[in-house]
């Protein structure tokens, strides 16, 4: 379980989990789950394109993720935000379908792009993943306070001269960066699960933003490590475990807080 390829996988998974935990906190805070789903998912089209022309999928993902983030920001200013997100997403996926139909590389490669692949992390991809991760965290640290303020009280932020539009774009770009680094391990679809489940769980268990971020990272780590280990042992896809564990944590946390609240109310 800890030899050869798998060591790389563990390292990459750990990096991905840390980023997903941190970014996920802001996704849940802002109610931006759809965008957080659309950007990595749409970026899949880019990866398919990159495979077609024989470039590193990471590059294709990056181009589509950033393009998608900017496109959603642009369209969202001119119409309903959720409609803009949906249409940008399907356009990118439609392109993905086109690229796939031309591609000779079929089912297996696509499947691993979508749902992740345990044994798919070459050593030379670890450095770019780590670099993207550091960039994500740094960008969020810089954006932290205006991001919080625009999430909580947009009118106040506006009155104090915060350009909500720019902060939003910055945030979408961070999501795009995070999406780009996910391919090798969890795949574009499951990165999303990893952002929502742990962050929502942490949010219902803690009170301060800082604790929520820390807990979110811990839960994301637990999710990924557990999923990898079980996937290795059962030979079932890692995405299945990542996806369902997120929901399990959240359900558990809800039941726990409800029972605790019931006890304090009766006692």
């Amino acid at each position: 379980m800890f030899s050869g390829f798998m060591v790389n996988t563990w390292i990459a998974a750990t990096l991905v989990a840390v980023i997903a935990g941190v970014v996920g906190f802001f996704v849940v805070l802002r109610g931006a789950a759809f965008v957080a789903h659309a950007i990595p998912h749409g970026a899949f089209g880019g990866a398919a394109g990159a495979v077609l022309i024989g470039v590193n999928p990471l590059a294709g993902l990056g181009v589509f993720a950033v393009g998608g983030a900017l496109g959603i920001g642009w369209l969202g200013r001119r119409g309903r935000h959720d409609v803009a997100t949906a249409l940008a997403l399907v356009l990118m996926l439609g392109l993905g379908a086109l690229f796939l139909s031309f591609s000779v590389e079929y089912a297996a490669a696509i499947y691993s792009l979508l749902f992740g692949e345990v044994l798919g992390v070459p050593s030379d991809e670890l450095l770019p993943i780590a670099g993207l991760g550091v960039a994500c965290i740094a960008a969020l640290a810089v954006l932290y306070r205006p991001l919080m303020l625009t999430s909580i009280a947009p009118e106040v932020a506006e009155a104090r001269g915060v350009r909500a539009q720019r902060i939003e774009t910055g945030f979408l770009l961070v999501v795009a960066l995070a999406a780009t680094m996910t391919v090798p391990v969890v795949g574009v679809l499951l990165m999303f699960s990893l952002m929502i489940g742990p962050a929502a769980t942490a949010g219902s268990l803690t009170r301060s933003p800082r604790n929520a971020i820390a807990l979110s990272v811990l839960i994301a780590l637990a999710t990924v490590w557990l999923a990898l280990a079980v996937s290795y042992l059962t030979n079932l896809p890692v995405g299945f475990f990542v996806g369902t564990l997120g929901a399990v944590w959240y359900g558990g946390a809800r039941i726990w807080t409800a029972r605790r609240r019931g006890r304090t109310a009766s006692g």
């Binding site: 849940v28 789950a33 759809f34 679809l189 079932l236 896809p237 996806g243 997120g246 959240y250």
Partner: peptide, 27 residues
């Protein structure tokens, strides 16, 4: 609205996990 967003996200996440499993088994 925020709870709805999270609920949709969680259901979607879990559903994608199941899709990963079944598509794998299909293949």
């Amino acid at each position: 609205p925020r709870a709805r967003d999270v609920a949709t996200g969680l259901v979607l996440g879990a559903g994608l996990g199941l899709a990963a499993l079944f598509l794998y088994l299909d293949a």
